[in-house]
Write a protein that binds this DNA or RNA. Structure first.
Lengths: 156, 156
DNA sequence: CAAGATTGACGAATCAATCTTT
DNA sequence: AAAGATTGATTCGTCAATCTTG
């Protein structure tokens, strides 16, 4: 539990270093998407989800669940992406005339290219920088956290 | 360099796990500040910087530099924090009647308590979860990235 | 009215433009 | 005019309210 605690200088330094590294890394990853395709991380996430989907059309709720986002966030973003010609909202006549979302041909083209660039950035600044030990360390810590969330954790 | 690249399933899984862990961790850290003090991460950052400062008053530019933020962001945030009674903008008569920023008594009290809670959260979800090897791994990767930024990196 | 989606209002961050002091 | 700070416009995300379909 969170008793009265403070961090030592070393602990603070590690924390500070780590948060800074995250910031720098995010800057590289998102900067590449912005520079080369003028898309945000959020737009990229939607593109990836649509691109990977086996079904041709996804619903807003599917996207929201896959991305763990608010439905309204998805809806707002889709409106902007529709304006820019990346996605289209279509009628899926099959299972009850619900609105379906799909990438436009142009959106699909951008998605493909962005995924490649994104993979390169991750490789360059993340995967290629990690030794086996570092990979294991990151995996272990990450798994612990993600599992703790799914398990529901006892909050103070 | 970023040639035509894709990620293997394992690589993608590691990346996905890691980004998820970051999200979960941020949720814990920021959630605690929000829940217990109703302050955002940004407000906390300003409080910490003011609290740690040796000088009694900092200028907007000092805060902006320390936090690596836009000056206007600092200014906007200070306006909100001033409204909430956390900070005050005062005249520092000494070195040329420039506006100085300082924590109010209440702001200082909240800052102190928030720093303690924050330290506890970091301990619980970050420091206590890391073995020596993991700590070293994270430090090495972080240092590499942060140094690469300061050195200026060659952008493909 | 329940589920799914959209819309509007607001808070917060960014960028450009403006104001102030020397 | 240069440095420092603020302000305004725009954009994105969140929350609550509304619209729509069955």
């Amino acid at each position: 539990m969170t008793e009265n605690q403070t961090l030592t200088g070393d602990e603070w330094a590690l924390w500070d270093l780590w948060t800074n590294a995250q910031r720098v890394f995010a800057k590289y990853v998102e900067g590449a998407l912005q520079r080369e395709f003028d898309i945000s991380k959020a737009e990229f996430s939607v593109m990836v989800t649509l691109h990977r989907a086996t079904r041709a059309e996804l619903r807003v709720g599917d996207l929201a669940e896959a991305l763990a986002w608010d439905k309204s966030r998805v809806s707002h973003l889709l409106t902007r992406m529709e304006t820019r010609g990346f996605v289209s909202r279509i009628e899926s006549g099959a299972a009850g005339r619900r609105t379906g979302i799909s990438l436009t041909p142009n959106g699909r083209r951008v998605a493909q290219a962005a995924i490649t660039v994104h993979a390169g950035t991750i490789r360059r600044y993340f995967l290629d920088q990690l030794s086996l030990e570092q990979t294991a360390a990151i995996r272990a810590w990450s798994e612990h956290l993600v599992v703790s969330e799914n398990a529901g954790h006892d909050e103070g």
